[in-house]
């Protein structure tokens, strides 16, 4: 039955972001929420992650779920090495050698093998974000929440990040809820793409990709058609405002 949000109402800074809002997230898939800035995407992630509470409404299926996060900024501890940053989110009830093993395994997956003992200041922006991806998968969790983790990166780096992410995700399929305002990111990463309007949020479109993320290519007819559709739904929104 998946993860559901029903009858959600939420005001934030005097703006009604959600009014009787419903949405369902399929489990073990990547759902991408596409929408303009300030439409309440981040608020929705915060509601899901339970850092803020709804005014009313219910979140079904999220009750005993654990979350991992990939933020826009990697948020690494500057005084910890790559391995230290990943071990940081692992429970101390896990023996030290086990933590080390797990951290190193993920570091290998994002191909940072040679950089285990480097400090964040010694890494490039893209490498730091890779560490934060590894950290999200190292932490025990059911759902990964991503808030515009690719914005601010250039296009090549963006494509690479998507490749790193899908590479790990293939081996460890968790439910991913990913928020962005960039159509290409959504197309490359989302299994499901949900287009949000300006607040109060309405779902303008909901598309599902049949094709697995790793096989997606920008030059296929299906990709192009989807991009057109999403562009139209996003521009519908701009007619409204």
């Amino acid at each position: 039955m998946g993860l559901q949000i029903r009858n959600l109402n939420k005001k934030f800074n005097g703006v009604t972001l959600f009014r009787d809002f419903h949405i369902t997230f399929p489990e073990d898939r990547i759902t991408c929420i596409l929408g303009p800035s300030g439409c309440g995407k981040t608020t929705l992630l915060n509601l899901i992650g339970k850092t803020i509470l709804p005014d009313s409404g219910s979140l079904i299926g999220f009750e005993d779920k654990l979350f991992s996060y990939i933020f826009q900024d990697p948020r690494l501890l500057p005084w910890k090495t790559v391995r230290g940053n990943i071990e940081f989110v692992l429970s101390r009830s896990m023996p030290a050698f086990e933590r080390k093993k797990q951290a190193e395994q993920l570091i290998k997956l994002v191909e940072l093998d040679g950089f285990v003992d480097y400090y964040p200041a010694q890494l490039s922006g893209g490498m730091r974000q890779r560490v934060s991806i590894a950290r999200a998968f190292a932490a025990p969790s059911d759902i990964i929440l991503m808030d515009e983790p690719l914005s601010g990166l250039d296009i090549t780096l963006k494509k690479n990040m998507i490749r790193w992410f899908t590479q790990i995700w293939k081996a460890d399929r968790r439910t991913v809820i990913f928020v962005t305002h960039d159509i290409d990111e959504a197309l490359f990463l989302g299994d499901e793409i949900v287009v949000f309007s300006h607040p109060p949020v309405q779902i303008l479109a909901h598309e599902s990709f049949g094709e697995p993320v790793e096989k997606r290519r920008a030059d296929t007819p299906q990709f192009k058609k989807m991009k057109e559709k999403l562009t139209v739904s996003l521009s519908d929104r701009s007619d409204v405002t």
Partner: peptide, 10 residues
Amino acid sequence: ELTEMARLYR
């Protein structure tokens, strides 16, 4: 942001 990250990761 760092302390929030730490709290969010429990």
